[in-house]
Amino acid sequence: MKKYVCDVCGYVYDPAEGDPDSNIPPGTAFEDLPDDYECPVCGVGKEDFSPEE
């Protein structure tokens, strides 16, 4: 599963860790995050994330 980086603030979503602040359990692929998922740091939506190079 690929990591995704927030284009706006640089936060990295790591599927292995999930996002405990947003109640996303470890092992959740970025693609499986809900449509209204928001970056826990800056609050922008999924459309502002890109796969980590």
Partner: peptide, 9 residues
């Protein structure tokens, strides 16, 4: 109207 990251969260 939220304007997130313009220029802070």
């Amino acid at each position: 109207i939220e304007t997130r990251m313009l220029h802070w969260p």
